[in-house]
Amino acid sequence: MTAETRRPPAGRDEPRLVRTGSDMQVRPMTPELYRVRSRRADRVDTVTLQLVPVHGECPPYRPGQFTMLYAPGVGEVPMSISGWARSGGYVHTIRAVGAVSGALCGKRPGDVVGVRGPYGTWWDIPAAAGMDVVVVAGGLGLAPLRPLVRELVRELVRHRSRYGRISVIAGTRTPATLVYGRELARWSGLGVDVQVTVDHPDHAWKGPVGLVTRLLDRIVFEPRRTFAFVCGPETMMRATADDLVARGVAARRVELSLERNMKCGLGWCGHCQLGPLFVCLDGPVLSYERASRLLAVEEL
């Protein structure tokens, strides 16, 4: 048998989903097929994919929600949605950290992946109306915050912003690992106070070095009327939230997005439990008022 005849007839067969439930009821663990519309390499280990449904329409999402992304034959991982693709699909920015995310990063335009969702809670953007908005991202934590900032920026562009000062602080390991660099520059040009800090500067870097919390001194916000959205490594989120609360921001007005092991996104598999919470249902976005005591318990 030659390699040619062994190859699956991908691309030739019409993609289809055979539902066998007698009542044709959707089985929530079966993904919908999505095709990679475009792929952009953001940095060495990170790509941004635009995924559009092979059949039908892409269900709406709210900034902060996630999907379960399936790399055929490899596995499925929760992945926050980074935006709405112009052709009616999801934008996902994916870092290759394991077998599944690695396989997803290797997908090329035309390839098919599975998508379930969107699932989970979202950033409470309306609650920030009339307040200063502080967005703090650590590393790829910017990915779920991007659609939130885009929504805020959209209003700025129309000169109809319901918010006070809008600040975005982004921390990254090195200048080369920064994602959405051009977009950050665009937001800056539109009136958002964008601050970027790096852990390890290169010779060309002239900006701040160190933790994101140090940049809280550089931005202007009135703590008692501030709403903050924070996403990044858990230790970074806790340090940032604690700092914000110490400055007078109410814990209920600080929202975090948590990351946990998930196999279903439906509250069935049990993996994402954090005390009484299922992070897939009660999160990923949680107020610090709710999350702080749980996160303070080691290995919960």
Partner: peptide, 12 residues
């Protein structure tokens, strides 16, 4: 849960 062959998904 399902089988995927080429670009088709079949549920049991």
């Amino acid at each position: 849960l399902f089988r995927m062959r080429g670009e088709s998904i079949e549920e049991p």
